[in-house]
Design a binder for these strands. Structure first.
Length: 744
DNA sequence: AAACCAGAGGTTTTT
DNA sequence: CCTCTGGTTT
């Protein structure tokens, strides 16, 4: 027996060794799903059933792909895996395929296409609305963007949509049509296109489809319950010959409907693949029995699902603790205090056995937890904040780079044509946009035409001429220079570096540092042998740059981001009607079931101890309103829980018989933490101490929302603080959620 | 072109 | 409440 099967239970073994034909693995939460996939890949290699390059494994995130690859490498000796093992997301896979074959279509698109991220997409939609003269109050761009994406994922094009007299519908179709035209003119693809065009490619060109079918003997897809229609099509097209598809997933964890994921894809697997074999992994290795019983009890309330209660041999463990706070601030503070106490109680354990997660439904909730952590000096990692690649200066530099490969990239063009300022003002930009629209060409082409024909102001003429020759001169570096040199040339020759230099502010300093980081990233890419193309593709597709998450002892994130992760200690916060389930979905039964699955995902992240918290009052747009406990709380058997409420909650008031307590002391009053005694000494600078808790110009501080910054001005009880990449912000000294950072 | 101010509007979730 | 946008001012 292969060493790869040791320590696996019979179902897991079957999932690893069933190597012929379609296989569906319904893997419950904590059932060792990733382990099974990793062992299966290793087994295929070990048994000589496939060489590495003949296997394609698809994961949901880039991070998951990386991790999976690493684990396979640990399991299989290097001698057994010559050749590239392809583990990637659907999107990355598609980019690879399109970079190779997109020319085949012969139309507007070429292999040099640009990827438009959600940001570029939003801008384009806005521009389209404007061009069509549609009021963006009446037709919110976001809704339009969503509508277009949804239509695309259903396989619609502007032409297949029936004309409608409904103005909303009509506006959507018109915008959709223009949007597609503008994308084509810019040789740009949005995230949806990446999948859709790959599907079209495989459908249209049999030889390409055959190539892929020949190459990939085995295909594995993780998180299959969250595939959307184009992804399903892709899977079917890639497996049409051999049908060696191993789909792994859990219908109870399908939580991406808003992104066009269709739970039926996994429920109908046996219909799509009549010869399919199904294996259910129902044994849970992760959670205590108490936590698992709660999860089972909750998910049982959903109708359409396979009957697969999870079982475990783990001990019952601690009861789930339910905490009702008077308001959201108290909720956050309670959680942070409990984390500190819990981790202190478990100090004897290895650090990774005391990792904690605070999970919430919406990103907006994160701020309170950040502030609470800062207040009590508890280090944390926030997942899903601004990533490096979302900073303005980074996007600017990337826009230049994008233009070098594809000058027709309108989004990039708009972004940098006048950054740094070169006399291309509003009216010139409008003239460019108008010309581009009229001729149905890119901004770049429109610019070229306008330059030839004249008719521009002298200033604009010089500005645009300079811009054009700048791009041209940088393009000459494409083949010669190393990536790092190229990036650094972009920063200097564009004048961006000088601009920041002149500014002389700390903010500009921070931006410069970020750009230097980008150059370092390029140098790393150089070492991996990557070209600009790959570098940009990675920047477009890699969303989570937070790899620190692994080592953090406290992680803050949305429930969606927590999928696939586990933590010994888990807090699910904001268990209120309107938040979880979210108010936007409460009417529709299907949507409600998705919210329940979301809650199920949250609960099943916990290994040892689970807390569920609710705030009785929560601020909504400024005013505090009373909340109702989430209906999901009622679905957990009382025997599994202990309930506790905070000071000042209604429950407590009733107990005391006191009419009402005043709301808990405003925590804002004590926000400004005094510098730590030993730390701030040493640098006895000249700046006068302010009235603001001993903060001086030059001090480094940590702000709850903006992160690390440096104080640049103290006056009138106000603080001006520079945040790298975010500019200078002014705060009322007394109220600012700040923590002083000790000097090194 | 930058800096300042007023007002509106916003909260799902993400490759 | 807080942030962003757009308009106005210099």
């Amino acid at each position: 027996m292969s060493y790869l099967l040791e320590g696996l239970n019979p179902e897991q073994r079957a999932a690893v060794t069933t190597t012929e034909g379609p296989l569906l693995v319904i893997a419950g939460a904590g059932s060792g799903k990733t382990r099974v996939i990793v062992h299966r890949i290793a087994y295929l290699l070990d048994q000589g059933l496939a060489r590495p390059e003949q296997i394609l494994a698809v994961t949901f995130t880039n991070k998951a792909a990386l991790e999976m690859k690493e684990r396979v490498h640990q399991l299989v000796p290097a001698s057994r895996r010559r050749g590239e093992l392809l583990i990637s997301t659907f999107h990355s896979f598609c980019v690879r395929a399109l970079r190779r074959h997109l020319d085949r279509f012969g139309g507007a698109y070429t292999r040099d296409f640009t990827i438009y991220d959600a940001d570029d997409q939003g801008r384009l939609v806005k521009a389209c609305l404007k061009e069509l003269g549609l009021d963006d109050k009446k037709y919110p761009p976001r809704a339009m963007q969503y509508g277009i994406s949804a239509a695309k994922n259903r396989g619609e094009t502007p032409e297949t949509l029936p004309p409608s007299s409904d103005p909303k519908r009509d506006a959507l179709i018109k915008t959709f049509r223009l949007y597609e035209r503008r994308l084509a003119a810019a040789n740009a693809l949005d995230f949806d296109d990446l999948l859709l065009l790959t599907v079209r490619l495989l459908r249209r060109f049999q030889d390409v489809a055959d190539d892929y079918n020949d190459r990939f003997r085995y295909i594995l897809i993780d998180e299959y319950q969250d595939t959307n229609p184009p992804q399903l099509n892709l899977a079917r097209l890639l497996t049409q010959q051999r049908q060696n598809l191993c789909a792994v997933g859990d219908p109870d964890q399908s939580i991406y409907k808003f992104r066009a994921a269709d739970i039926r894809n996994i429920l109908d697997f046996e219909r799509h693949y009549p010869k399919a074999k199904t294996i259910i992994l129902a044994q849970n290795y992760r959670s205590t029995k108490t936590i698992l019983d709660a999860a089972n009890a909750v998910i049982r309330n959903n109708r359409a699902r396979p009957n697969k209660d999870l079982a475990t041999r783990n001990a019952a463990g601690e009861p789930i603790r339910c905490f009702v706070a008077a308001n959201a601030e108290e909720e956050a503070d309670f959680i942070v205090r409990e984390i500190i106490a819990w981790q202190r109680r478990h100090e004897h354990l290895r650090p990774e056995e005391t990792r904690a997660a605070i999970l919430y439904r919406t990103n907006a909730q994160s701020r309170l937890f950040e502030e609470a952590c800062r207040r009590r000096l508890l280090p944390y990692v926030l997942v899903g904040g601004f990533s490096f690649y979302e900073r303005a200066e980074i996007k600017d530099a990337l826009a230049y780079l994008r233009l070098l490969l594809n000058p027709h990239d309108d989004a990039a063009f708009d972004r940098v044509v006048n950054v740094p300022p070169r006399g291309v003002g509003k009216s010139t930009l409008e003239a460019l946009a108008a010309r581009a629209g009229a001729d149905s060409v890119s901004r770049w082409t429109a610019m070229t035409r306008l330059l030839e024909e004249g008719g521009l102001s002298a200033r604009a003429l010089t500005g645009l001429t300079n811009f054009a020759s700048l791009i041209a001169s940088l393009q000459r570096l494409l083949d010669a220079a190393r990536l790092a040199d190229l990036v650094s040339a972009v920063v200097t020759r564009s004048g961006y570096a000088d601009l920041l230099e002149q500014e002389g502010t700390l903010e500009a300093e921070g931006r410069k540092q970020n750009l230097e980081e980008l150059v370092s990233a390029a140098a790393e890419a150089d070492e991996r042998g990557e070209r600009l193309r790959e570098f940009l593709d990675r920047a477009a597709l890699v969303a989570d740059t937070d790899d620190l998450v692994e080592n953090a002892r406290v992680t803050l994130m949305t429930i969606h981001s927590a999928k696939g992760l586990e933590f010994p200690l888990v807090f699910v916060a904001g268990l209120e009607e309107g938040l979880l389930p979210h108010a936007r979905v409460a009417q529709d039964e299907d949507d409600l079931e998705e919210e329940r699955r979301l809650f199920y995902v949250a609960v099943t992240r916990a290994k040892r101890q689970l807390y569920l918290t609710q705030a009785e009052r929560r601020r909504v747009y400024g005013n505090e309103v009373a909340t109702d406990p989430s209906r999901f709380l009622d679905e957990i058997p009382e025997a599994l829980m202990t309930v506790q409420s905070g000071a000042g909650t209604a429950a407590r008031r009733a107990d005391d018989g006191r009419p009402s307590l005043k709301p808990p002391a405003k925590i804002g009053a004590q926000r400004l933490t005094k510098p730590k005694p030993a730390a701030a000494q040493g640098a006895g600078r000249d700046a006068p101490a302010s009235a603001a808790g001993g903060l001086r110009v030059g001090d480094r501080v940590e702000h709850a929302t903006y992160g690390a910054g440096q104080i640049v001005r103290v006056a009138d009880g106000k603080l001006d603080i520079a945040f790298p990449g975010r500019g200078i912000k002014r705060f009322v000294a007394e109220a600012a959620p700040l923590t002083k950072i000790a000097r090194k």
